[in-house]
């Protein structure tokens, strides 16, 4: 009798286990399907495309790594690659300093809950929910050298010499776009940083204050190390975002990274190469896909390394 119940029990537990597995599979199904359709499939097809010669949209012969060699070593193509790549590097460095630095400063300020901080929190976050396309167009109008708000204002306060054609000069175009991007996105890292700061027990800050730490000491010695997980997230997201930067430069500088490729980005270069444009020439899926694969490998490798390194300096808040 006892063995029978045990067996019954066993089979019931096996059944339960199976049901559980089925349930897990069921819950995973939509996510896996979406991931497979919109992430893995395009990725694999890009790798597939990149080893063929393409005549427009018609697949030609298998060419091995020739497309990669073309992108990387042909001086006529790799000068665009390097130019775009260094522009992306500039974007990353600038956004890290300007956008995330500002976000950190804002988060530290807001964390002290000054009067009306909830209002400011909303104000800083508001641009994040606006459409990038709208922001791009809006700021393109603001920065118009003749009719734009920015120069009209500068002329009004008699800073005529400052009223530059912001988006027209190779020296200022990228910087202007980065400021727009920072304006657009600063609320996001601010919010993440703020949440991280709020997670730090108040006692720790007070203990430091009693230990004689200045506000700067507290920010540097206590808050900064303890918000490491948030910093990891933001650094990695900024990295990925910087090297995939597309919408703002596309809308404000066009597909050719105008003026004179000073706002050219890997994303724009890929788009031009793969799909062509009215003036840039015809679409070439082969080199375009090779470029996409290279961009992917670069971003994947570096964000993985960065995540590993940054995670190692995180501390659990007990």
């Amino acid at each position: 009798m006892s063995t029978l119940t045990e067996e019954n029990y066993k089979s019931a537990s096996v059944r339960r286990k199976r049901l559980r597995q089925l349930w897990i599979a069921f819950l995973l199904f939509p996510a896996v399907t979406i991931l497979a359709t919109f992430v893995f499939l395009p990725m694999i097809s890009a790798i597939w495309y990149s080893v063929y010669e393409w005549d427009g949209l018609v697949r030609g012969d298998f060419v091995g790594l020739a497309n990669f060699a073309e992108v990387l070593f042909n001086p006529q193509s790799n000068k665009f690659l390097f130019n775009a790549f260094f522009n992306n590097v500039k974007v990353f460095v600038t956004l890290m300093i300007v956008q995330n630095g500002l976000a950190l400063a804002l988060a530290l300020l807001l964390a002290r809950e000054p009067k009306g901080y909830r209002f400011y929190q909303v104000v800083f976050f508001l641009p994040v929910i606006l459409s990038t396309v709208i922001i791009g167009f809006q700021w393109k109008l603001f920065l118009n050298p003749i009719f734009g708000l920015v120069n009209t204002f500068l002329r009004m306060v008699e800073l005529d010499s400052w009223a530059l054609p912001w988006l027209g000069l190779p020296e200022t175009a990228l910087g202007s776009m980065l400021i727009v991007n920072a304006w657009h996105w600063v609320g996001f890292p601010t919010l993440v940083f703020l949440a991280a700061i709020h997670r730090i027990p108040k006692d720790l800050i007070e203990a430091a204050r009693l230990d004689g730490a200045s506000e700067w000491n507290i920010a540097r010695d206590i808050i900064w190390p303890l918000m490491a997980p948030a910093v990891t997230i933001i650094v990695v997201l900024t990295f990925i975002g910087s090297f995939n930067w597309f919408e703002i430069p596309y809308i404000m500088g066009g597909l050719e990274g105008s003026p004179a490729y000073s706002t050219d980005m890997l994303g724009l270069l890929f788009y031009r190469t793969a799909f062509g444009s009215v003036s840039a020439g015809n679409s070439d899926f082969g080199t375009g896909s090779a470029l996409a694969v290279l961009i992917f490998i670069f971003i994947f490798t570096f964000s993985t390394i960065a995540t590993r390194y940054l995670t190692s300096r995180e501390v659990e808040l007990s």
């Binding site: 393109k140 050298p145 003749i146 009719f147 530059l164 054609p165 988006l167 027209g168 000069l169």
Partner: peptide, 15 residues
């Protein structure tokens, strides 16, 4: 025009 480096198609027509 002043700032012609930043003058786009729409602005040209407008001017």
């Amino acid at each position: 025009p002043t700032g012609y480096e930043g003058v786009d198609y729409a602005t040209m027509k407008q001017l």
